[in-house]
């Protein structure tokens, strides 16, 4: 039960983008060792600009 709640919560965080930075850090730690990661603020700024550079909302 606890595990289900945790999975659902993680799903909600991922859908909303709430944990986007945590996931970026994880990706960075695995693939780009040695270079400093972006700060939370820098990451969010880039993330927002990228999200709104194409068609992602409809009628």
């Amino acid at each position: 039960m606890k595990k289900v709640v945790k999975t659902v919560w993680e799903c909600v965080r991922t859908v909303t983008g709430d944990n986007a930075y945590d996931r970026y850090l994880q990706h960075h730690a695995q693939n780009h060792r040695g270079t400093p990661p972006l700060s939370r603020r820098e990451f969010y700024a880039q993330y927002t600009d990228q999200k709104w550079s194409g068609i992602n909302r409809c009628c």
Binding site: V12, R13, T16, G17, D18, A20, Y21, R40, R41, F43, Y44, A45, Y47
Partner: peptide, 9 residues
């Protein structure tokens, strides 16, 4: 952007 960056929920 400023107060709590990226805390979407």
């Amino acid at each position: 952007r400023r107060l709590r960056p990226g805390r979407v929920l």
